[in-house]
Amino acid sequence: MELVCPAGTPAALRAAIGAGADAVYCGFSDETNARNFPGLNFSREEMGESIAYAHAEKAKVLVAINTFPRAGATAIWRRAVDDAVDLGADALIVADIGLLDYVARTHPHQRLHLSVQAAAANPDSIQFYVDNFAVRRVVLPRVLSVAEIAAINLDASCETEVFVFGGLCVMAEGRCSLSSYATGQSPNMHGVCSPASHVSYRQEGDALVSRLGDFTINRFAADEPAPYPTLCKGRFSTKSGSGYIFEDPASLDAAALLPALRDAGVTALKIEGRQRSRAYIEGVVRAFREALEALDSGRPIVTSGLARMTEGQTTTSGAYRKSWR
């Protein structure tokens, strides 16, 4: 299986490749990619140099242009596509149907991957993108169990890529406006979710309250860790109970499921976290490279090194085991 790793900077890209990434995904520093954070991502020049570096190291670069182009301003996204093609990107990761159509018509030989932001969660959706835009690989949403992934691979006429580590969307990706409801900034339109610019904290006696826009997302006792207030991972109250009603603030770790994912016919494994530090990326990529080598040689997979990388958060195998089905 191919190991696909995140890079928010050229230095992170080199670190990921050095640690054993087969491919690195990254984006331009603007609203065309779904990690549009200040100080992150690549200028055109950096992208060109990074692609050359990766190719010299026999690694691939996948360029994410995976927000939904703003009506009346699609030229910005089309220019990102044209530039990524010119710079020699090995694949483009795209979610928007209008932009997929543009790539398929304008650059018919460019390898296209369907972004997780398109949330293609069943064989019919996947086939729609294969038939219409010749998509070669689909990044599967994090709503599927391993059995469902295996069933998709039996039906699908393209490769599949699945997330194995990092942040975990609990809603269908690309179909969530929770962030823009509270802040006006959305993953689909602005490439950000629960943006730091709208986060505030205030001390109320012994409690620390985290807020997003005008809404309280969580309240922590003095001895409690206070994870970032991503909206769907907040604590709320209802007449039927209170707490983490959508999802505990856990991150995904599917390292133990690598044999099952291989048997399910998965082509590529994806690590989330373009916003993460170079040291984090290096550590996680190295751990997964070692896990894959163990898998290939029939040795047990040891993943203890990964626990340190989750910053004290609990981890979950997400929907892959679907204990709640």
């Binding site: 703003r70 009506a71 009346g72 209008g98 159509d101 729609f128």
Partner: peptide
Amino acid sequence: VACLQHLAKRPHAIGPLVNVYNEATAAF
């Protein structure tokens, strides 16, 4: 989107839960 696999080339409607963010997607 899965439903569109069965509806192409026939008159149909696109609901609010399918992502149409721009004129290029609407044109498609």
